[in-house]
Design a protein around this nucleic acid. Structure first.
Length: 268
DNA sequence: CAGAGCTCCTGAATGC
DNA sequence: TGCATTCAGGAGCTCT
């Protein structure tokens, strides 16, 4: 399940390898992909890759006439392969680049492979909150928004309207590090806790980027390198294991339909 | 409007 | 062993 750190690393790798390369043509294999793959992707021919960047969890490939927008959902992956590489079951899109292929695979079809003339006018971009690695993501911004809401803090940090890119794994880890219970109501968070939350978000995400993300199940990055951050997970999927700080058993609850892990002793 | 909950999907894990 | 059921989750959508 790629989250912000994984996407950040994928974009960095893609930039190293794909910048200024020519997309000769594309192949789309899924027919029943509904809104998830734009038909316009088929029309891309002989276009140079001008830039690759990340906005929230979207991978944006800029070419002369517009943008390719890729979201990996929870099971999507992008990888480079040769032209003779066998096509697997869920390989939905190929970008043919000189003598190799950038291939998009997504078994669960939660991802997106879209075309946009101008991403900055798309409604899903206009709705996005501030990137947690941006300097504008500061205590003032976080505290102001937290105070406005009456939702559980875990739901707050996973909501793209306020903070982009934080999924279930990192939200659990961030709240553990912040010593805040996941079901604490956001408006009850004080300035001190909010500051801890801010620092924890930046710390966890940067550490995950450094260790190349968390590899659980399907995630493979562009060079099929494997992430190492799972070694550092302290609560996620640690139900009934001892808390590293206090030896209490880690609890699991379901919050907004998502598995939520925490230490009832450490987190207040 | 806000917030809770449902939904898309498939493969892995679990249950009997 | 083998089939059936459950679970996982990003983010948009639907309900209340």
């Amino acid at each position: 399940m790629p989250e912000l750190p994984e996407i950040e690393n994928i974009c960095r790798d893609m930039n190293k390898i794909l910048l200024n390369k020519l997309i000769l043509y594309t192949t789309i294999r899924c027919n029943k992909f509904k809104k998830y793959v734009s038909k316009e992707i088929k029309n891309i021919k002989n276009k140079k890759i001008l830039d690759i960047k990340r906005i929230a969890k979207y991978i944006i490939i800029k070419i002369k006439s517009g943008y390719i927008v890729i979201h990996l959902g929870m099971s999507g992956s992008l990888f480079l392969c040769s032209k003779n590489e066998k096509i697997s079951k869920h390989d939905h899109v190929d970008l043919i680049i000189n003598n190799f292929i950038l291939r998009y695979n997504d078994p669960r079809k939660f991802g997106l492979f879209l075309w946009s003339k101008n991403i900055y006018k798309e409604k899903f971009f206009l709705r996005l909150g501030i990137d947690p690695l941006n300097k504008k993501f500061n205590l003032y911004y976080l505290f102001n928004n937290i105070k406005k809401k009456k939702i559980k803090i875990k739901d707050f940090i996973m909501n793209n309207k306020f903070i982009v890119g934080i999924g279930n794994i990192y939200s659990n880890e961030i709240l553990f590090k912040s010593k805040i219970l996941p079901y604490k109501i956001s408006m009850n968070i004080n300035l001190y806790e909010c500051n801890k939350l801010l620092c924890s978000i930046k710390y966890i995400l940067n550490k995950a980027i450094k260790y190349n993300g968390t590899t659980i199940k399907n995630f493979i990055n562009i060079n099929k390198k494997i992430g190492n951050f799972q070694k550092f997970l302290k609560v996620y999927k640690k139900e009934n294991k001892k808390c590293i700080n206090c030896n209490f058993l880690i609890k699991k609850i379901i919050q907004k339909g998502r598995s939520t892990f925490f230490c009832k002793n450490c987190q207040k």
